[in-house]
């Protein structure tokens, strides 16, 4: 009766995925709090939100949407590749995902820098002089995209870790639930952005 007996039990793949799905629920609710605030304040300040949205750069937002969608595609392809036994291709595709995540963050950095350069950031004097609606818009914008950015960063590290596991052969065509779960997480990060983009950049 030593702890090594644990290793003899087969891995429960359905259990692992069930756990991941539950975790994704919690992520949705975490962002849900911010989306509730968005909904209430949008209803209160439709004008301010429109004026705020006009000041965001659609090209940055749209470009990042494309980047994230492509990265979701590459991770989905990586799973299929690994299922079919093409380990090297799978590793390359996960690598592409990591690069896309980095690209997204670099874009975000320039976008934020430009805004901050214009004096628009929480607690800046310039922002405090704006009408209430626009202040609220930019404050939620920074909090939501900031929290999302942290998730992209985490996802990048997770993908890098999975890449190392694939290289070491610990994630392989017979045991790839870790890659599947990392992919699920990545799709969620993508999906949240799909909601953020129209709500902030395309608002009319």
């Amino acid at each position: 009766m030593s702890e090594t007996t644990h290793a003899e039990h087969p891995k429960d793949y359905s259990g692992a995925k069930l756990g991941m799905w539950l975790f994704l629920f919690t992520e949705v609710l975490l962002f849900g709090g911010l989306f509730i605030l968005y909904a209430v304040y949008l209803q209160r300040y439709p004008e301010g939100f429109k004026l705020g949205g006009d000041q965001l750069n659609v090209w940055f937002g749209g470009g990042n949407t494309l980047v994230l969608l492509t990265s979701s595609l590459s991770v989905a392809m990586a799973i299929t590749a690994l299922q079919r036994g093409r380990v090297r291709q799978a590793a390359n595709l996960v690598g592409v995902t990591v690069i896309m995540a980095l690209w997204f963050l670099v874009n975000k950095f320039f976008e934020w820098s430009a805004k901050i350069h214009h004096g628009i950031y929480p607690s800046s004097g310039h922002l405090k002089e704006m009408p209430g609606g626009e202040q609220v818009f930019f404050n939620i914008y920074y909090l939501t995209t900031g929290l999302h950015g942290i998730h992209v960063l985490v996802g990048m590290f997770v993908m890098t870790w999975v890449l190392i596991l694939i290289r070491k052969g610990k994630v392989n065509p017979d045991d790839y639930v870790t890659l599947e779960n990392a992919g699920l997480y990545w799709h969620l990060v993508d999906l949240i952005w799909i909601f953020i983009f129209p709500l902030y950049y395309l608002i009319l």
Partner: peptide, 23 residues
Amino acid sequence: LATPVLGITVLLIFAERIVGSGL
């Protein structure tokens, strides 16, 4: 299902105090 909402709530308090988000 409920605890994440507490998570975002206390994060918002934290953000109000640290970066002055004023929400």
